[in-house]
Write a protein that binds this DNA or RNA. Structure first.
Lengths: 250, 250
DNA sequence: GGTCGTATCCCCAATTCTTGGTATATGGCT
DNA sequence: AGCCATATACCAAGAATTGGGGATACGACC
């Protein structure tokens, strides 16, 4: 009866005023659902001040310290898979979402040695504002409570909403806006064209293209076109479907 | 017992191969949950007019035609609220998410005249890839099935996932897999580092970094790092969360 | 009328990237 | 033992980018 757990958790969240209370409620909910651990991470995207984000978990100390190493290296496949799914996913099906490198598998293997077996991760994104994941994890010797994954999905989402409400305060500033020409140049650059090629395509001078890209980099406050493209993609200023089609044909 | 509805819907979705089937399944699920209508919209990130996205609904004809006018004018408050919430929300609580203008209220009012009363909207975002909402709506004379909103949340999310899978051109071959070193170099490059900086960070030679990037480009059959980064981002080998965090903190 | 943003074009120096090579060592697999 | 993938390192030539300078023109706004 997942509804019971969900309602219990929801009523607990109403009283939550600090992250420590959320932590306690989540830890309790994880156990009640049949999991051994939980982990919640929330990153707010505010250019104004560097907020390190929120990270709550009750992982074994051993794993927590090892994990940060993997995470700093950008080696967390769960994080990547979270960018690919609307709904929660079990870790054993991650390969359907993203390719796993050898290092990814090694990380999962090390995790199992530290008591981190299978898991269920609830991802949520608010474009330009926030991104968060809430994971529920079982010990390698235990099995996921498949009957309660729907409840875990709801509870994870509620926890993320609660965390967002706790961490969020200021209205976000609108991202940099580029002019049409700047965006056009950026698009062709993202498609792999050089400035010279872009100039020919658009029928303008090479230096003009460079100038537009220069201005675009200034707007986004980055110093190279890699970062420019990544930023614009993340903002939604350009989309993959704008780019990918041109990959082979160019 | 929401679990029953969720399981029924999930098992129906497994067989869905076309949007018309998804439409039928959703329409049926909406009624079973106690709603009168549903609406699902999915936008894949591409400004090209070629793919206008997906819109499924069983709204009264009357409302459907009026709505497009509001939507084209960017006057849909539900759409705006969807950018602010991790979880589904009932329309009567929209004002907690966004300020409602006079035009917004007018639109909701016109909706009621057309048989569109209160509703529950499930929003989902994948940064740089897709955005979607799935709404369940009751007639003005009916009340929302509050007991089943958790089920609606799950079912809405499943429907969006299904729609995403349908629109995303299933025949995805597993993309080229890079070695860990190649991926590390690629990651730091995507974070805006030059080969020299990456070499220093990883404690290896500049030319080694260039070699790894060279091999990576070969794997993806591209000839510049912009395209390499876009390709790796697109198939999930690296994720925005791996990159964006490093933009401000250096 | 003056200012500002946009779009267009130009130059230049320093740095970086791309592409073509070659080479050694290690570990896994058969 | 032999093969293959991987990681490491180096060289060199040519193309491309990056960050400084400029300039002209047009339209919007106050």
């Amino acid at each position: 009866m997942p509804a019971k757990f969900v309602e219990e958790f929801a009523s607990e969240l109403i009283n939550v005023r600090a992250v420590t209370e959320l932590n306690a409620a989540l830890s309790c909910a994880a156990v009640r659902l049949g999991f051994d651990h939980f982990a919640l991470s929330l990153e707010l995207r505010s250019q104004s001040r560097a907020s390190p984000g929120l990270l709550l978990h009750d992982y074994p100390e051993e794993w927590a310290s090892v994990y940060t190493g993997f995470d700093l290296a950008g080696q967390d496949p769960v994080r990547r898979a979270s960018d690919k799914s609307f709904t929660g996913f079990t870790w054993d099906r991650m390969e359907e979402l993203i390719p796993l490198t050898r290092g990814d598998r090694q990380m999962l293997s090390v995790g199992r040695e530290c008591g981190i077996g299978d898991g269920y991760t609830v991802p949520r994104h608010l474009p330009g504002m926030a991104r968060g994941t809430c994971s529920f994890v079982v010990h390698p010797r235990n099995h996921l409570p498949h009957r309660l994954l729907a409840a875990a999905e709801i509870i994870g989402a509620l926890a993320l909403s609660c965390a967002l409400a706790l961490e969020e305060e200021e209205p976000e500033s609108p991202g940099p806006v580029l002019t049409d020409r700047q965006r056009e140049c950026l698009l062709w650059t993202a498609r792999g064209k050089t400035a010279a090629e872009t100039a020919m395509i658009l029928g303008i001078g090479i230096e003009t293209v460079n100038q537009h890209l220069k201005m675009s980099r200034e707007r986004y406050q980055v110093h190279c076109k890699q970062a420019l493209i990544v930023s614009a993609l993340f903002d939604g200023l350009i989309g993959f479907s704008d780019i990918i089609r041109w990959r082979g044909t160019g």
